[in-house]
Design a binder for these strands. Structure first.
Lengths: 105, 105
DNA sequence: TCTGGTTATATCCGGCGTGGATATAACTAT
DNA sequence: ATAGTTATATCCACGCCGGATATAACCAGA
């Protein structure tokens, strides 16, 4: 199973957030500020995902965005997409169970 | 945020799995065998949840079940139920995002 | 132009949580 | 009786995370 941080990063990349800092903001956004991926966790997680073949660096960023030399862009590999999908499916089952248990509506 | 194991335990208890070993089977069931809560993680997690006030031991188990002296029964505290609900709501948002990203249907 | 705030990446340390193994013992069925 | 399953508990090594610190590029406004 992926770590929570690992899934957050994959999901952010699948949602079109191409570089590290954008991933950080995505996670904060989607959780309503409850979850924060700090630099230490963020960049280490990205490096691990690259080492595991789930993510790869892509030389070109969004061509519409203004150039920023600091940014490093990433994208999912097919394996990363598969892993993210499996994790999302597991999560769907957990949400269904939470609904059946009356925790959420 | 809860750890993955912590949420699994709370969800299992909310789903009427009263004792430790039943929690273990619940997690294995719901994940289709992909996730296994091993003894080391399971009982340490339960103890931590008790220490944090999210779970409490309940002296009586299911009266319909045959008595088994080894079993220790647990239930959610109001605080535990709140924590589980918040985590489930966060997870719902993640699943929605995964759907919007085309990861799942 | 220079200055402050934000964006962006990177690394270190201490500590917490996990996986896997091992142990023990009570149940159950044959 | 005895073998297999159910059930709880604890240990060690390792991996991951939070928080802090560092560095530097970008941008807006004075």
């Amino acid at each position: 199973m992926l770590t929570a941080a690992g899934f957050h990063v994959l999901l952010a990349l699948a949602s079109g957030r191409g570089h590290g800092y954008a991933v950080m903001r995505f996670v904060e956004e989607i959780s309503g500020g409850a979850v924060k991926l700090r630099p230490g966790t963020l960049y280490r997680t990205i490096n691990r995902l690259v080492a595991d073949g789930l993510v790869e660096e892509s030389d070109a960023g969004d061509p519409a965005a203004p150039h920023d030399a600091r940014r490093r862009y990433y994208q999912l590999t097919p394996q990363g997409e598969r892993a993210a999908r499996e994790e999302a499916e597991l999560m769907t089952r957990l949400v269904t169970a939470a609904r059946e248990a009356g925790l959420i509506t």
